[in-house]
Amino acid sequence: MTPAPRIETDRLVLRGPVADDVDGIIAFYADPVRSVGFGGVMPRDQAWRWFASVIGHWHLRGYGFWTITLKGSDAPIGICGIWNPDGWPEPEIGWIVYPDFEGRGIAFEAATAVRAHAYDVMGFTTLTSNIVPGNTRSVALAERLGATLERTYDNINMGTEMLYRHPGPAELAQ
C-alpha cells in the first residue's frame, strides 16, 4: 500500500484521502454544473466508488489525488493530484475546490505544489490537464499554470476533451 506523502504550502496541507473525506466528493458529484468536468452527476453509491478508486489509485500507480485542507484544519476543501486510470493518454493534474473555497487561489496553489512534487520528488518529466470543452474556469487555471492546449482527443469516459500540456521541469527552471 502506497501512502500519499504530505505536501505543505503557505496556506495548505495536501494529505492522503481518508474515509471521512467522502462527503465532499458525494456533494460534488450531486451538483450537475460542477461535476460535468469529472463525468457528471453520480448517485451517492457511485460517487463513493469513485472516491474509493482515488484511494486505490495511490496503491496501483504510486500517486493520486491528495485531499486539500487549510493549515490548522483537517477539514477537506477539495482535492488535487495526478490521475492516470486505465485508458488515459498519460498522467494529468486534476483539481476540485469545494464551493465555499473557490476564488481564493487554492486550486492554483495546490496544483503548483502537486506539479513541483511530481517533477522534483517523483521524477515526472511531463504532465497534462484534460479539460472538457466549456469548462472555462479549468482552462483559465491550466493557462495560469503555464499549460498550453496541445490537442483534443476522445477520452474513453468523458468524450471529447482538450489536453493541456504543462511546462516541464526545465521550462519551469528558466
Score class of each variant (00 low, 15 high):
N155D: 15
G78W: 07
I79D: 09
E109W: 11
Y164H: 13
L127Y: 08
R151H: 09
G78K: 00
F65S: 02
F124R: 02
A75D: 15
I93K: 00
A30W: 03
P32K: 00
Y29E: 04
N155F: 11
Y164I: 05
P17W: 06
Q174H: 13
G159N: 15
V41D: 01
P17F: 05
V121P: 02
I7Q: 06
M122F: 09
D20K: 05
Y63T: 12
R6A: 06
A118I: 10
V22F: 02
V114H: 05
A27C: 03
M162G: 02
R115G: 07
P5W: 01
V33D: 15
V13A: 14
A170P: 06
V114R: 00
A111M: 03
N155L: 09
V97N: 02
P89H: 01
F51M: 01
A142C: 06
V22C: 07
S73I: 06
H57Q: 03
A75P: 11
I79H: 13
L145I: 13
D23A: 15
S35I: 09
M42D: 07
G24K: 00
A4C: 08
R115K: 11
A142F: 10
V41P: 03
E171K: 04
H59T: 12
Q174N: 13
D120W: 02
T67N: 01
T67F: 04
M1P: 13
H166W: 07
I96R: 01
G39P: 07
P167W: 13
G64M: 01
I96H: 04
D86R: 14
T69K: 00
A111R: 00
A75N: 13
G37Q: 12
P89K: 01
A27D: 13
G103T: 06
V36M: 14
G64Q: 01
L127W: 06
S73N: 09
G37D: 15
A173L: 07
F28T: 04
T125R: 10
G56W: 02
A75E: 15
L60I: 08
G94S: 14
D20M: 04
G56M: 01
L145F: 08
T152A: 07
G123Q: 10
R137K: 12
P89Y: 03
A113W: 12
